[in-house]
Design a protein around this nucleic acid. Structure first.
Lengths: 137, 137
DNA sequence: TGCAAATAGTTTGAATGTCAAGCTATTGAC
DNA sequence: GTCAATAGCTTGACATTCAAACTATTTGCA
């Protein structure tokens, strides 16, 4: 039965990706959730704490703690919104941006490998499928 | 540039899968890592602690704690190996197996949706690509 | 045989991630 | 001007995770 087989492929793909990601992040002294935060801020630019929490899928309580750690370690800058004193914005520091770029570059490198392995046409159809499946979930 | 675009699709696919998995596990009072343990034991049957730790990609110290929690909650059974008194085997309890089957079933259901969306042919080629990319990483 | 090295697992301490709930301060609406 | 909504913070509880130190057992070899 194909269902069983496909199921296993998907699960193992997910695990592999997880450990790939973990591997490239671990020796830089950053955790996966921390890198994820840097990624979201890097992609978005200046972002409100509230919005960041919602994009990351964590509560604001969780984010308060995480962001504070990253500010302390020098990856993140946090500033009050002068228009609304309840609110804060975070951005990447120079150090944070360097880390983000490096990570982003590694992603790009992986994609290049995939494309060069599949060839342009198959790659296009693969990523199209992947995108549509994402919508499906 | 396609690389940027593909990169984003892959990252977002990963995030989506993560939260899908989290969603279906959360309301059953089990964490993702715990479910992962149940999955590995369920797929493998009786397995030695050492081997389980290695398959899960955690240290034996981590596993000792996790397994103990799952034994306490009644999902897992742990027995000494009579041939080697240093070693133990774990298996799913009836309750654990029920949880495993349920989860496995949900995976199957997702795959069915994907296949019915893509059609047999595109699905076959998609999962073939996915499998080969997994090897690539 | 007997002892040293290897192996399986446990314990502990430290750091992180996570949530829910309750809290403070500020803003907005009527 | 007051009251509700909003943004964020704090705290307490629990889970994940590792490294390092430890115990018990087995195995290899001199």
């Amino acid at each position: 039965m194909m269902i069983e087989r496909y199921s296993q492929i998907l699960v193992e793909f997910f695990e592999r990706m997880n450990s790939w990601e973990h591997g490239i992040v671990a020796d830089r002294g950053i955790s996966l959730p921390q890198m994820h935060l840097l990624e979201v801020v890097g992609n978005h630019g200046q972002i409100r704490m509230k919005d960041l929490a919602s994009r990351m899928g964590v509560t604001t309580g969780t984010l308060t703690v995480m962001a504070h750690r990253l500010v302390t370690k020098g990856y993140l800058v946090k500033e009050k919104d002068p228009e609304d004193n309840r609110s804060s914005f975070v951005t990447l520091s120079v150090k944070g941006r360097r880390e983000y770029e490096m990570h982003h570059h590694l992603h790009g490198h992986l994609i290049e490998e995939i494309v060069s392995f599949l060839g342009d046409e198959r790659a296009a159809s693969f990523f199209k499928d992947l995108e549509e499946i994402r919508e499906l979930m």
